[in-house]
Design a protein around this nucleic acid. Sequence first.
DNA 1: AAAACTTACGTTAGCGCTAACGTTGATGCC
DNA 2: GGCATCAACGTTAGCGCTAACGTAAGTTTT
Lengths: 340, 340
Amino acid sequence: MVDKIKPAGLREVAEASGVSMMTASRALRGLEGVSAAKRQQILTVADGLNYVPNRNARSLAVTNSDLIGVSLPTLFNDVFADILDSMRDVFRKAGYAIVVETTEYDSQAEQAWVERLLSWRPAAVVLTGHDHLGRTKTLLRNSAVPVLEIWDVGPDPIDIGIGLDHVAAGRMLGAYGAGLGYRRPAYVGAAEGFDPRAEARFRGLVEAFAPTCPAASWIVARVEERNPFVAGEIGLATALGQGAPDIVFFLNDHFAVGGLMHCQKQRIAVPDDLGLAGFNALRIASVVTPDLTTLASPRREIGGRGARRLVARLRGVDTRGTEVLDARLVPGGTTRPQGA
Amino acid sequence: MVDKIKPAGLREVAEASGVSMMTASRALRGLEGVSAAKRQQILTVADGLNYVPNRNARSLAVTNSDLIGVSLPTLFNDVFADILDSMRDVFRKAGYAIVVETTEYDSQAEQAWVERLLSWRPAAVVLTGHDHLGRTKTLLRNSAVPVLEIWDVGPDPIDIGIGLDHVAAGRMLGAYGAGLGYRRPAYVGAAEGFDPRAEARFRGLVEAFAPTCPAASWIVARVEERNPFVAGEIGLATALGQGAPDIVFFLNDHFAVGGLMHCQKQRIAVPDDLGLAGFNALRIASVVTPDLTTLASPRREIGGRGARRLVARLRGVDTRGTEVLDARLVPGGTTRPQGA
DNA sequence: AAAACTTACGTTAGCGCTAACGTTGATGCC
DNA sequence: GGCATCAACGTTAGCGCTAACGTAAGTTTT
């Protein structure tokens, strides 16, 4: 069934070129110490034999690899798809390949992934957030592998941290809403403990409204549904069943779009009868009518800068430490000044 | 900077346990031939030493790995994110890890990725579509690595193929539109040659309308914009500038949602003044108002079944060959019967 | 009670590649 | 002409792990 023809190795290339393995190795890796003529000949021979180097052997010999392991919660979200995409560009140019796993917001899954990753002796590891299991941190700390923590930063990064302050982000958006005169806020999110970043933003929202609305007065709807658009619809319906908010903050823009669509179906005028706000300025946010009030997270910058710092570290520059980037408020048509 | 403490290897575990490396290896891999007491002791010692096996060495010794390389055009599209997600479940359970690369619809990038992949001696390779460079096919064919081609199938798969017939899919949606009485169709897509699957669907649409609308009469708008929602808006505006279609087919649902939002902004009544239709039944399709007329592609099934066939093949079952799955029409509120 | 297994290990020989040293012949220099 | 220098190679010794084959006890069979 599967052919047994053993693929040509360095030995075959060397023999067919009439040189030693070492010379062939040098020629193929572009190292010096090989005459131009021989190098050319060796490359030709290798090509003819369909030679494909064996990186397992290489990695074993040099005790490191050019793999970078990445752990993200999900890819069904522009945030992480964008972060991944921007990192990939940088890593690719630097000669690294990425191995990604999605954990669905589960630290156990993250732990298992890290353990597996380390068995490949990766060049580096990228994790989402700063909240990991103890064993995860221990393993990483004494593996001596550079670690990049993205999206959310904590006080004590394993190595390199870059992201935003989600509490501050929530506060910023909340302050904007409170400033417009909204007084009866609601929040539509996922199950508590599911997404720590969303929870942090929620805390920020509550803080911002504290002067005018005590935390206990918030209307809160938590939804289990996986399709975020549908979750937004359900969540808004639930929230409206619990009270009469004048503004609804959603876990992210996908949720908010779901909420907006619910309003359209129920003929609730936005922003006249109800204000809506999302998070993260996802692609859809600026397309819907009215366009969403949201908060733009510098996610491509997080990925790009983070990746560059990691690459620099791999090249020996000490780029350890935490970096906090700023979110940017995006006022949209789903909110408007309240009152007189 | 980076600590130099050499991580514990099998040798260290064996010595600390007072057994040979082979016994330690057996114990850690759960093979038989080790007494329960010794196994337990070895596991404890390994844990205490923070032992992490070196898969490069393992792969080298057994000349294969548990990596499956995947090439997808993009992850900013539920189709591929879903396919990846459903494959990942199957592969994970079977003990394989996935390495993904996105090619942005570029065969050169795919070629480079395959070459890199093969250097890891992967257990298998997954590619999107059936249209690859000659060298890509050659390399794969004589590497003896099982290959799974997904999403779009061709007459001569490298190994295993599973997907749908995009021309037939286009025909199905087109027939529905023509059947409703639409006579002046338009198409909004990407640059020609960019996405071969989209082109195939477009051909199917044209075929279906052939009896009532000659191919030359189609209004066609091709957009370069990367944000698919925005592309849909721009494309629809362009199309409307070129003529007066009664129905507009979009490259996919994201484009269509963009078009729908354009209609809302321009106060074009959908479906009364204009019909809209997307492709792929993406998550957002059923959430917007009115809900999109679209075609549901069995993408989770493609990923799941494809992955299972690949795993079976890796276990020695010959599952080669092509499998074509059916798309399902999703009539929505963006179209309605025309005429009297 | 001797032959025939069986269990629980240990030994040997690589997997394909590369770092770190050789070795060789040619060139330059005083 | 003798000696250092250097480019262009070759040799040796692993990297950490595992398949395949020992081996030395205990256990069963007849």
